[in-house]
Structures are given as C-alpha cells and as structure tokens.
Amino acid sequence: MVEVSMTVNGKTVSGSVEGRTLLVQFLRDDLKLTGTHVGCDTSQCGACVVHVNGEAVKACTMLAGEADGAEIATIEGMANADGSLGTIQAAFQEHHGLQCGFCTPGMVMSAAALLKDNANPSETEIREYLEGNICRCTGYHNIVKAIQAAAANMTPMAAE
C-alpha cells in the first residue's frame, strides 16, 4: 500500500492505496467525490478531467501515488463560495450545454483550463481544445456556445 496526501478543492486529504490505484478511483472511492466520472478505459473520453496543480489532467491516466503532494481541483470545487454556480457552470445551464450530465464535469473542467490560458478563444480553438472530451448528447453546439458565453462573461472580470 502507498500512503498519499494531497490537497483537493482546498482541503488536505490523505489515504492508503494500492500502487495501481488511479487518481480517479481515489477521488471517487476513497474521498467519495463522485462528480468526477469514468466513461472509458483508454483515456479518450475526458469525463474524468480534473485539475492537477492547475493543469487539466485525465484522472484515469494518473496514479493516485503520482498525485501525492499535488493540488487537485474537481467539479465539486467549481461553484462560488456562496454555493451559486460559477461562471462556466452558469453558462452551461444558461445555454443548455448538458443533457445527461455524465460528460459535464469533465467538460467544465476542460473549459476552465482552456479559458485560464486563452481568455477569448475562437470557435475553432474551442472545438479543437475539446478533442479529448466526448459528449454523446448535445452535438457540442451548446457546449461551444456555453464556453463562448463564459469567456465573454469572464473577460470584464479579468480586465478589472
């Protein structure tokens, strides 16, 4: 067993895991943070995207042990402090950017990573960035619209 300790959504957590335990299993099974989903076993679908030290990472491609000491952010930490939806989450609701909701946590986390690096992405840049996130419900139309809207809503804040 491997002892791991990390910060998840601002809280320090630790656990004892098998060496082969994936980060996504540690989040879901040990920490009961079930918002991060598993949609495939080949690191293609992106339902498990979280942030590791500020970078978007598929939590199925990383061992829990490799995340020892890291700062992790998951969908559970994306709302505002008062519990209201964050800018990207609110845009997804406003623009109907989700249907079954299963890919949604990964989509939101990927969108957040994109907008952190590129505050005003073009439609093409958004679509290319989402290559690693598969949605079967929306046809992507409203996801792209939501991310465009989130970018527009976040820009004035960045300018302040």
Partner: peptide
C-alpha cells in the same frame, strides 16, 4: 425554462448508478 437538473449535474451532485 432553464433545466433544474443542471444544478446537480454541474456541481458533481448527480446520483448515477456507479455513485
């Protein structure tokens, strides 16, 4: 009308069978 189910899906509070 905006979807009320979105709030739980967008905050990681959905309750899927594997959860």
């Amino acid at each position: 009308s905006k979807r009320r189910e979105d709030v739980r899906f967008l905050t990681g509070k959905g309750n899927y069978t594997d959860d």
